[in-house]
Design a protein around this nucleic acid. Structure first.
Lengths: 250, 250
DNA sequence: GAAAGCGGTTGCGTAATAAGGAACAACTGC
DNA sequence: GCAGTTGTTCCTTATTACGCAACCGCTTTC
């Protein structure tokens, strides 16, 4: 591990956590280094566009370079290109948001979203990470973990209670995964965010592994059990289509 | 400038240019350093999620961390949140793509996009940079450069000819900016990409500066002059609305 | 109006780190 | 089975990153 590279990336992490920006002195204090050290690290990040100094306040914020790089990362994920038109169909037919997520380091990360103008407004979901155990999209993937993977997940994860509906017992969670495998879909019953419900199904790849899932998301008022049942055939068919585009035999 | 930080960010740039990924030896060769040096730089980037090693091929690619950071950057741009519902209205009423762009280092960068399922498919525009002189969105901003700014832009810019419609003469370009100020809108007449036309208008901020613009984009078949005239009232009204949300008196 | 304090920035000498080389392991191709 | 290549690890040393001091600009206080 190279200390100065590590430090510069930690600066980026602090700026992530402080959206209004941070000054040189604050960054030096947070990092535990001299102001001149912090300044030089920041200057190097600024040179490459990863940070930007605000004109009036002199504080530094994350730079637009991340948008560029993000664009490239998304382009590398061929599942996004394959799934997008199918998600547009889902969103149009249900007038709801459709999300595509990917498993990464025992969390899910939102890699695409399609919405309609009247769909409930949830901003900047792309790039957002979320837990597995209390999201529909996460549970839809976890249901297909192999035994070793599930064991490792459960040993590393802690069941934080986001809402009154969040599962916090390992046994309950395992039973829920059982139900999901049986039903072929999962539901986030306001387990992660109050007022938000979604239904999700897994996407299988050419090796029949599940690293992605696709969902329909709405408010808990909109997403009644009956409505979910109505949407399920479309969602399952869509996931099947995406899976087959990825080379799955399922 | 800290050399090892600089090097690690240059590695990211190489990975941006090589979407299929690069191995340690290739990166070392491109950087002109020893394999062990390259390896340690890459390991540090990987530790923070900025690169990821592919399982089968051992090559490194850009990591998902960029999606996360991009999410934060977009959240910091309040113009995106303010403009988005208005862009949805534009896209719905015109059945075309609406783009929001921002000026950055004498280029424009796409910071939001709204599309409909039947709109022409242009992937991963978000985060993409484009020239000012041959895009509707860029010209809509450049038309409002002050004299010093325009002078600096013209001294730094080179007029690469993307299509047969691209302006390559400074005089022609200046005359075009004059027309845009007079008309209150600009048109990209397949100047940047063959087959793509757009109409764009500037967005004024509270200091009456123009750092953003919003557009309607479609194929050249769809975006006839007549159709553009039809769309203009909606687009101008929308830009006015966004401008006033940003505190502009215009 | 002057002084104190704070933040951002710069330059220099030195301590600590980053760098390269060598070696090793794993894999591929002939 | 061997040669070649790539990725990875460890150790010594050369080079860089670091911290300190000083400076500049701005704001606040007296």
């Amino acid at each position: 591990m190279i200390q100065s590279v590590d430090r510069s990336l930690i600066i980026l992490e602090y700026l992530k956590q402080h959206p209004k920006g941070l000054g040189v002195t604050e960054i030096a204090n947070l990092l535990g280094v001299a102001k001149s050290t912090a300044h030089r690290l920041i200057m190097t990040l600024e040179e490459h566009g990863y940070v930007k100094q605000m004109e009036e306040t002199s504080v530094y914020r994350l730079g637009l370079k991340f948008l560029e790089m993000s664009n490239i990362v998304v382009d590398q994920l061929n599942v996004v290109e394959l799934a997008h038109p199918i998600m547009e169909k889902i969103s149009k037919q249900t007038d709801k948001i459709s999300h595509l997520v990917m498993l990464d380091d025992f969390q899910v990360i939102y890699i695409d979203k399609v919405e309609t103008p009247s769909a409930v407004r949830i901003y900047s979901q792309l790039g957002r990470r979320a837990p597995i155990y209390c999201t529909g999209v996460g549970k839809a993937i976890a249901a297909y973990f192999d035994e070793a993977q599930l064991k490792r997940y459960l040993s590393e994860n802690s069941f934080h209670k986001f809402t009154k509906n969040t599962y916090t017992e390992e046994k309950e969670f395992k039973q829920e995964l059982e139900r999901i495998r049986s039903n072929g879909y999962s539901v986030d019953n306001e387990e992660h965010e109050e007022g938000i419900r979604c239904v999700a199904v897994p996407i299988f790849d050419h090796l029949n592994r599940v690293n992605y899932s696709v969902s329909i998301t709405g408010t808990s008022v909109q997403m009644t059990d009956q409505r979910i049942q109505e949407y399920l055939p479309l969602l399952k068919e869509s996931a099947k289509e995406i899976s087959s585009l990825l080379g799955s035999a399922q």
